[in-house]
Design a protein around this nucleic acid. Structure first.
Lengths: 116, 116
DNA sequence: TAATATATATAGAAAAACTAAATATATATT
DNA sequence: AATATATATTTAGTTTTTCTATATATATTA
């Protein structure tokens, strides 16, 4: 029973966002900074990629958001993972594991040089 | 110096095709079977995805192809990796390593529950 | 006050990947 | 012999993903 549809980078960003939110409520900009900092610049998700993922997660009821005023007029939208999102996260983690293992297998496969 | 443009799934198929061709000349259908068999059905690349990748690799001179007659009228196109393709493969492998490590770091990061 | 950091949002384009089908040969099964 | 299945390449058309680039605005630091 193969992995669902194979949107891998998207699947990855979605998974990583849910994984971070699974620890703590966070707002968009904070998530993008965490990606950048934790990965030492190797995993950078530009705003134009991150926000649409957050909106899609919200549309699917995996996460919810709450506006919080910080400063006089400034507003932050904190995202919170819902039970449905935790289930989704488990699925994504297990798919990711399968795919990475498959990639490792293909990379390390020894295919006979002679056999046709 | 982050990873180039982040076409990850595509980068992955491209990388895996080059990795297999680095061992032995193969034809398209054979590559798709190897993916399926080695990965135990977990990494399936449909024809509509695989052939465009092969054509793009050929357009970029990473690989070349040679038509071989098998059976009376049947023709197979064997693909062969070129030096340029081997260099490309090294780059993709190193990018892949960086990204997977970044993903692992983000997945296992402990972010403080209290700090703002 | 100028520059930089914080923060959300979105239009538009580019790239990646899939579905589905067309086309055809070869082999195995009934 | 007929039918089904496996082998094999190709491409049209669409969907999904991702990025670039920008707009908008507030807060902080030099």
């Amino acid at each position: 029973m193969a992995i669902e549809r194979n949107n891998f980078k998207m699947g990855t960003v979605e998974m990583l966002v849910l994984s971070l939110l699974n620890q703590k409520d966070l707002y968009g900009y904070e998530i993008s900074l965490l990606f950048k900092n934790i990965s030492e610049e190797n995993f950078v998700v530009p705003e134009g990629s991150l926000y649409p993922v957050l909106y899609k997660l919200e549309d699917n009821h995996y996460i919810t958001s709450k506006e919080v005023r910080t400063g006089k007029r400034r507003i932050r939208k904190y995202y919170h993972i819902e039970d449905k999102g935790k289930i989704r996260l488990e699925i994504l983690l297990s798919d990711y594991k399968l795919i990475s293992e498959a990639i490792e297998k293909i990379l390390s496969a020894e295919i006979s040089k002679t056999e046709d």
